[in-house]
Simulated scan of single mutants.
Amino acid sequence: MNPLLFVHVPKTAGTSFRFGASAYFGDGSICLDYGPESMETSDVVKKWMGEIPDPWSFFQEMKYENRKMLSGHFNAIRYVPVFGLENTVTILRDPIQRVVSEYKHFSRHNRYKGAFRSFYSKPSFTNRQLKIFRGLSWPALGFVGLTERYDESLQLLNKKFGLEIPYLAENLGREKLEEKYDIPQDELEELRILNAGEITLYKKAVSQFEWRVLLSRRGERFVAGSIFSQSNKRIRGCAIPEQNNEAVVLRVKVDGAYKGEVLANEYRADLRANGAGRGGFVGFSIDISGFAMGATLECEVAETGQPLVNSPWVIRGED
């Protein structure tokens, strides 16, 4: 098994996952990168990922030392090109609840004395989950779990990678992960505006998680896929199969009417560079020249009915 990359989004139960992984893999099996000033950061990370980062040399030494996972607070693009999208996992949390939890953490452990509104208004604390995955297609990650459904997430992750990481509860500000903080309505509205992009991401992640659960129960394969963009009268995206290397067949509907199927076997250099499955031959494109502006295009896995992220897509006029 290749080493896993765990992108530890702050206040998402990541510490619980890291401790569980360490208990399963063994002491010294996990590399840590929590910043150059952190005492937790591993020496091998400081050696290779300092002022002039050399991710490849770091990855080779990590494998030589038989390390099983890297965990830390970092932007995913820092390590994904060497670990690969398929081996990258993370846990996401309701954006508003995550901000409150982070504020309470800063107040308890970092001696933050400011008001909550002052904290969540700072650009560095808005859309944090969105920023951590900037430059990557997050739907193509190997696994995306949810804090609110941590136990279920852990079971699904273990099943996918053939692991037995135990459930541990560490560094929790509340007794139960699913408990919600009460927030005054005026602050709640401000938080929704400030974190609108991240809220959209989270809703899409929840939808895909639901499909992962359903398909797991059916014994069917999950597909990591998304519509990316529209240009030059074509809609483009990717569909990455998890359980085998067969190209995914996608069913296309426009305004609810079946329009045919497309095979996701086109080469995507950016996905290949970040270690996507099938050597990057997971892309697709759909000719939309015959469809009216404002029409709604749906793209789903033909085998299971699983919709891709960003489906349905409203066809817009050319820029």
Rank of each mutant, 00 (worst) to 15 (best):
224 A>I: 05
195 N>C: 04
184 P>L: 06
291 F>Q: 14
221 R>C: 11
246 E>Y: 13
236 R>N: 15
289 S>R: 14
269 A>C: 08
180 K>G: 02
265 N>Q: 05
219 G>K: 09
224 A>Q: 08
216 S>D: 08
289 S>H: 14
224 A>Y: 05
212 R>I: 01
251 R>T: 04
275 G>D: 02
265 N>E: 05
203 K>T: 06
283 G>T: 09
230 Q>G: 15
251 R>N: 13
218 R>F: 10
212 R>C: 01
285 S>A: 11
261 E>N: 14
228 F>S: 15
220 E>W: 10
274 N>V: 03
183 I>M: 06
211 W>P: 04
263 L>F: 01
241 P>D: 11
208 Q>G: 03
244 N>V: 10
253 K>R: 13
189 E>N: 11
193 I>W: 11
187 E>I: 01
234 R>V: 15
244 N>Y: 13
197 G>L: 01
227 I>M: 13
274 N>Y: 03
256 G>E: 03
198 E>F: 01
288 I>C: 06
270 D>V: 00
205 A>I: 02
255 D>S: 03
274 N>E: 03
206 V>D: 02
196 A>K: 01
192 R>K: 08
235 I>N: 13
219 G>I: 13
218 R>D: 03
264 A>I: 07
202 Y>I: 02
201 L>C: 02
275 G>E: 00
277 G>E: 10
211 W>V: 00
